[in-house]
Design a protein around this nucleic acid. Structure first.
Lengths: 218, 218
DNA sequence: AGTAGATGCAACATCGATGTTGCAAGTAAT
DNA sequence: ATTACTTGCAACATCGATGTTGCATCTACT
C-alpha cells in the first residue's frame, strides 16, 4: 500500500520488474485476469503485489507507463526525422514491432490520466506525420494522399503484424515483418497497376477494373 | 432466469430487442459495463434483463450470435462467389462495414462455445479466400501474393474503417469508406510505382528507394 | 553482526456485481 | 372480461476480487 516511499532495496526492485513482466504476460492472455493470477505468475504472494502497487489500476498504469517509455525509445532510435523516408519507415516499423510484440497488453492501454504518456503518443503522432510528409516530398506517396488515413492504416498494419509475430520469438523475423508492413502500406497487396491492361487473361466476362468509381448497384 | 420457455409475447419480444440494442451501445463504449448500466440504457429494470438472459455470459453470447447472423447475411448478400472480383470486393466491404459500424462490440466477440458462430466465421473465411483467388486469376493480385497476409490486412482495414465510421451516421458514406478500403488494400497509400524514377525531386542526399531489401543496419 | 527492509502467510474487512424471489400492478391475447 | 404473461420494485443471498493488517522469517546492505 505504498506508492512512493524512497529508494527500493535491490531485491525489491527486481521483484517489481518480475511482477510487471508477469502482469504483461498474464494480462495479454486475459485482460480480466486477477491479481492472484498475476502474483502466481510472478512467483510471489498476492500481498506482495499490493505492497508494490497500491491498486490494480496503479499496476496497469505502471505497466502502461513502462511500455510507453520503450515505445518512445523505439521511435526515437529510428531517427525518423533525419534518415531518408523509406529507411526511417522501415526502421521505425521494426523497432515498434519489437516493442508491440513483447508488450501487447501494455501498449493496448493508452494510459489514461497519465499526461506524460499522452504527450509521448502525441509526439509520436507528430513525428509520424512529419515522416509521411517527407515521404510525400520524396515521391513515395502522392501529394493528394490523405495522411490521416495513411497513419491509421499504418498503425493497423503494425498492429496486425505484431499479432502475427506474437508466436514468433526469432529476432530477425521482425525485419521481415517490418518489410512486409512497409511494402503493404505503400503498395497494398494488389498487383502493380498496368497502365494499359489489354484484355487481362480471358474467362468470365468480368467488367474490367473501372478506375475508382463504385462498381455495382447498392 | 428462463432460457427457452416457449414463444414470447409481443411486448416481451420487443423488450429483448431493446435490451440487445442497449447492450451493444453500452458495451461498445465500455466492455466492462455492468448489467445495471445496460438495463438503465434499455429503460428496464435490472431484474428484467436477468429474466430474459439468465447470465451476463448468456446476454453477450446472444449478442454475438445475433451479430453473427447479420454478418453472414451481409457477406452472402454481396454474392462474393459469382460477381466479378472487384465488384464483389467492394460490395462485401460495404455490407460488412455497415454491420461492423452498428455492432462493433458484438462483432468483436467471436462467440466462444458457439459452434454455429464458429462455422459462420470459418465459412466467411473460406469465401474470402476464394474471392482472393479469383482476384488473382483476374490479375487484380499477383500470383505470388500471400493470401493469408492479404486477408489479415483486409480485415484490419475494415476494422479501421469501421472505427472511423463510428461517428458517422450518414449512409452512403459507407460506400466511400468501402472504396477507400478496397483501394488501399490493392494499392496501398503510396504513389503508383514509376518504372524509372529519374532523380525524384532533389534535396537531402537520400539513397533512392532501393527495391525491397532491408535498408539499414540492425 | 546488526539493522532496516522485504516477503510469505493467514486472517479479516469491504464492496460491487451477479443472480434470486415474491408480489403487486400493468398489458397482450383469446 | 378473463386469463396468462410481463414488468418494476424491494429485498435477499452469494461470491469473487480487492485491499488491509500483524507477525514470523528471511535477506540485503553497512
Amino acid at each position: 500500500m505504498e506508492t512512493r516511499g524512497r529508494a527500493l532495496r535491490a531485491d525489491a526492485e527486481r521483484t517489481v520488474r518480475t511482477i510487471l513482466e508477469a502482469a504483461e504476460r498474464v494480462l495479454a492472455a486475459d485482460p480480466t485476469a486477477t491479481m492472484e493470477q498475476i502474483a502466481a505468475a510472478a512467483g510471489v504472494a498476492r500481498t506482495t503485489v499490493h505492497r508494490r502497487f497500491a491498486t490494480r489500476e496503479a499496476l496497469v498504469e505502471a505497466l502502461a507507463t513502462w511500455a510507453t517509455e520503450r515505445f518512445h525509445q523505439a521511435v526515437e532510435a529510428a531517427r525518423p526525422l533525419t534518415s531518408p523516408p523509406l529507411v526511417a519507415l522501415h526502421q521505425v516499423t521494426a523497432n515498434v514491432l519489437q516493442v508491440k510484440i513483447g508488450w501487447s497488453f501494455a501498449m493496448s492501454r493508452t494510459a489514461p490520466s497519465d499526461p506524460e504518456a499522452a504527450r509521448v503518443h502525441a509526439d509520436v503522432l507528430a513525428q509520424c506525420d512529419r515522416l509521411f510528409r517527407r515521404a510525400q516530398e520524396a515521391g513515395l506517396m502522392s501529394a493528394d494522399t490523405d495522411l490521416e488515413w495513411a497513419r491509421r492504416v499504418y498503425y493497423a498494419l503494425i498492429h496486425e503484424a505484431a499479432e502475427e509475430g506474437r508466436e514468433i520469438v526469432d529476432i530477425g523475423a521482425v525485419d521481415q515483418l517490418a518489410a512486409r508492413v512497409v511494402d503493404t502500406l505503400l503498395h497494398g497487396v494488389g498487383a502493380p497497376v498496368q497502365t494499359l491492361p489489354r484484355r487481362p487473361v480471358g474467362g468470365a466476362g468480368s467488367s474490367g477494373p473501372d478506375a475508382d468509381g463504385h462498381p455495382g448497384p447498392r
